[in-house]
């Protein structure tokens, strides 16, 4: 009988020990698995972010290529044709029976003005031109063009004649300002757009503000393609992007490029 009881004890103790070992194994597996899951989620997130950044870079590169192509096409094709028309008009004016005919002169003026607009447009579209001209100068040309078109009134204020930026960043910052101007002129024709370039000791700050109708940022932040584009472009160059707007209080966009990023 004693032998039977001792055998039961051995069985129970061995069983409990075995159960403990198994339970310990399962618990350690669960912990390891959760750690692995978290690590995988982190790696996936990093890969996803990297992929989004690469996609964004490719999109921007494709857009720049398209802008370059359009710019060259405008310059080489329409520009040449307008130049030819301008030459013929000047010849007509010279040989006309009534050189004082204002209609011919008006045509020549319009063509001349169109050629000038076209040249400026091709300059703003051509990324290469923006880098050679420089960001500040390119923005000045852009402001002039906007004012000449008369859709809005644009002002540019800068505390430096030029800014030191790598070519890619210059183009991206220029495109952000272009997008902001385009948005302002689309949503509030006739408004005033103020562009500020502020070179600070440790950063470069660009502000684009208008006195348009404004909007609720919370409602629009996620949706507008233009706003998303600006934010994404700023992100690709490591710049800070801030948008502030209120109904009837206008809109202001602030881009801050840190020194190490300039």
């Amino acid at each position: 009988m004693n032998n039977n009881i001792s055998e039961i004890y051995v069985f129970i103790i061995a069983g409990i020990l075995l159960f403990g070992i198994l339970a310990g194994f399962i618990v350690s597996f669960v912990i390891t698995y959760y750690k692995k899951q978290q690590q995988n989620a982190r790696e996936k997130h990093i890969l996803q972010t990297q992929f989004n950044e690469d996609l964004l870079k490719s999109t921007i590169e494709i857009q720049e290529k398209a802008f370059d192509d359009i710019s060259r096409e405008l310059h080489d094709n329409i520009g040449q044709q307008l130049s030819a028309v301008s030459i013929y008009l000047n010849l007509l004016l010279r040989d006309a029976a009534h050189p004082q005919d204002t209609r011919l002169q008006s045509c020549a003026d319009i063509i001349g003005s169109s050629l000038q607009d076209l040249r400026q447009l091709t300059q703003t579209l051509l990324g290469e031109k923006i880098t050679t001209t420089g960001l500040v100068q390119s923005l000045k040309l852009q402001v002039e063009r906007i004012n000449r078109l008369g859709i809005c009134t644009a002002n540019l204020q800068t505390n430096v004649p030029t800014v030191r930026l790598n070519p890619r960043k210059s183009i991206i910052l220029f495109r952000i300002v272009q997008e902001a101007i385009s948005n302002a002129s689309k949503h509030c024709p006739g408004c005033t757009i103020d562009i500020g370039i502020d070179q600070r000791p440790r950063s470069l700050q660009i502000t684009i503000s208008d006195n348009g109708p404004g909007f609720q940022t919370a409602a629009t932040q996620a949706g507008g393609i233009g706003l998303i584009n600006m934010r994404s472009r700023a992100k690709t160059i490591g710049a800070e992007y801030r948008l502030s707007s209120m109904p009837d209080k206008g809109t202001s966009i602030e881009i801050v490029v840190p020194e190490e990023e300039t």
């Binding site: 032998n3 039977n4 055998e7 039961i8 069985f11 061995a14 069983g15 075995l18």
Partner: peptide, 20 residues
Amino acid sequence: FTFFCWSFYNILLKSGNTVS
């Protein structure tokens, strides 16, 4: 546990321990 129990089972059967 099946392996554990059957290992014991054969031993216990031989020793005639019916309780276990």
